[in-house]
Amino acid sequence: MTRLSLNRLRLYGALASMINAATAICAVFVLSATPTSAAERATVLALGDSLVAGYGLPKEESFPAVLEAELKALGHDVRVINGGVSGDTSKAGLSRVDWLFAEKPDLMLLELGANDGLRGLPPEDTERNLAQIIEKSQAAGVPVLLTGMLAPPNMGRDYGEAFNALYPRLAEKYGTAFYPFFLDGVAAEPELNQGDGMHPNAAGVEIIARRIAPSVIDALAAGTGS
């Protein structure tokens, strides 16, 4: 082999090394710019009654859909599963919670008890049912964001005090994240509710989602240790 051929081979080798290095650098930039995959997306299970299910509203205006949009607007890629069933009591929610864990949520937002209060069910029963739901969730490794509810005023003072107190007591006992009143800012506001005066309209749902979103973000961060 001539000296000229040897020099050409060395030059080609150097060029090949430079191309490989450039390719590797480009690959790093491409990977770093790739959006978060679905597998990395956080998932929130919203377990509740008609307030979660979206009674009287199209799917895109239901609480889970609006909360998901709000979280994304705040820069958090979170999927929110609609685990609401209209008419559910805390006992009904307890009866179906196990199979919902198949979705492998990173957080459970627990909104139940409104129908217990409307029906005048014993607060101790509501507390026991919610406690079992929390215990099942924690046993499955799913942290809980418990949302409180207030008893209807027509149930009387004693009932109201017993009912209203069970939520903060559960949050303290189990160390869960706690949002004191799910309907904060919306309850008893005619312009934010449907004709029945109990279920939020689209504007009401937007307020609920906007107010609770920071608590969801904090609960997710605490649950993942981030």
Rank of each mutant, 00 (worst) to 15 (best):
G160H: 00
G117E: 04
E127A: 07
A114L: 01
Q194S: 07
E189V: 12
D158Q: 08
E40K: 05
F181I: 13
F101I: 06
R3N: 10
R96P: 07
A188D: 14
D184P: 00
F101D: 10
L94K: 12
L4D: 14
I217Q: 05
S90Q: 13
A188L: 05
D98K: 12
E68Y: 00
S137I: 02
N82E: 12
R119E: 05
N115P: 07
K104Q: 13
G113F: 00
V85P: 14
D125G: 03
G185L: 06
M198I: 15
L220P: 00
L118D: 04
T147S: 14
L170K: 03
A165D: 05
L9F: 09
E60T: 06
G13A: 12
A139F: 03
V97Q: 09
D77K: 00
S62N: 04
R169Q: 09
G195Q: 12
A24Y: 09
H199G: 01
S50T: 13
E135W: 06
Q194D: 11
G175L: 10
L6G: 00
L107D: 02
G160V: 07
L170V: 08
P153S: 05
A209N: 09
L170I: 04
Q194L: 15
V216H: 01
E127K: 10
R41V: 08
G175R: 01
K173G: 01
Y159H: 03
A42K: 07
K173T: 15
E206N: 05
L150M: 13
A38E: 15
E70D: 11
